[in-house]
Simulated assay, not measured.
Amino acid sequence: MTATAQESQSLVLIVDDEPFIRMILRHFLEREGYKIAEAQNGREALTAFNQLHPDIILLDAIMPDMDGFECCTHLELLDCSKHTPVLMITGLEDQESVDRAFAVGAMDYITKPIHWPVLRQRVKRLIEQSQLQQKLEAVNLELQRLATIDGLTQIANRRRFEEYLNQEWQRLKRDKRPLSLILCDVDFFKLYNDTYGHRVGDRCLQEIAKAIKDIIKRPGDLVARYGGEEFAVILPNTDTEGATHVAKKICHTVRKLAIPHENSEVSPYVTISAGFTTEIPQSDSDLEEMIAAADRALYQAKAAGRDRFVQDILLPKSKNEW
């Protein structure tokens, strides 16, 4: 038994209508250290695949009921089969059959009578390639995630905020549904950093980010670090009443964290100001104006004494502005 097969204990699904062929393939591959499952036609193979999710399929081309070509075509339609290589084993070796095997999704092809050292290497190589591809995809997904996450607070970063806001703006423009945007700013945060130091300031931002994220529970909503001590919340399919509820809850929740701020001018604890706006995107409306409206509302909340939320009303354009 090879060390690689021992370590991975990969599962091989053998699909052939001849019991003798299945038996000799089983004995050979078991000696190589693989686990084995069997099916005698394409229909049984599909059932076995859905139940067992093998690491590779050795598939005979010519079988009754459902042959290997049709079986391979059905496997290609299954999302969970994209990492499972198919090695076609058959007595056919004409150009048309070989081309057809690759056309329906087979990764490799070997003819009968089987050359056992060749089979051993091809099974090993196909499994290794599949495992490597899965690892690379997992790494790429993690890199994509890291590219959209703020390193300090572990919520979405500014880049992800802009991408998602534009995506939802376009979608809701088509659906004619409301979109709400909340911008938040931690009150007197420069004074907080000056008083307690930047390391404590970082912990404060982390606590606030977590508190806001815990409030925003719908899968389609997004909490992002907008910049510095600013946070943004995107609320698709949310009207003014819903956005008011969320903005109020954010201010209340941050207040209830009771993070000491002895030099705040509004409270002995850290507080947050929020501004929001709600719009049903139109063909003649402007996403940047929506962001500016939320920012105006945030400025109004600060000017009114901080530790509060304010809504900015986006007025319809007059005919002179069209």
Rank of each mutant, 00 (worst) to 15 (best):
T244M: 14
L179V: 08
C80R: 15
G151F: 02
P236V: 14
L25V: 14
Q134W: 09
M107F: 12
A304F: 13
E241C: 07
D175T: 15
K35T: 01
R177Y: 03
I149F: 07
M63I: 00
V98S: 07
Y34F: 14
T47D: 07
K210F: 09
R31C: 13
M66N: 00
L78Q: 14
I215F: 09
V86F: 12
I250S: 02
G275L: 04
H261C: 10
Y164S: 05
E230F: 03
D79K: 09
T73H: 12
E44V: 01
D284E: 15
K190T: 00
R225T: 02
Q9L: 03
T277W: 08
I208H: 02
S81K: 04
K112Y: 01
T278W: 08
D175N: 15
I182K: 04
D16S: 00
I250M: 06
K249P: 07
G201C: 08
K112F: 04
Q9M: 01
A304Q: 14
A5W: 08
E137A: 14
E44P: 00
R306L: 12
L13E: 03
W322T: 14
A274P: 01
N140A: 10
A258H: 09
G227I: 03
A138K: 08
A224Q: 09
K317D: 13
D55T: 05
R43M: 01
K217A: 13
R171I: 10
Q131M: 12
Y192R: 07
Q6D: 10
T240F: 11
Y34W: 11
W116S: 04
P316M: 08
W169P: 00
E18A: 06
L78T: 05
L58N: 01
G42I: 01
E230A: 04
R158N: 03
I57G: 07
D16E: 03
G227M: 02
H261S: 11
S180N: 05
I36S: 02
E137I: 14
G33H: 07
V233L: 12
T278D: 07
Q121D: 06
N263L: 10
N263Y: 08
V12F: 04
R26P: 00
V118G: 10
I215P: 05
R306C: 13
E18M: 06
T84Y: 02
I215V: 09
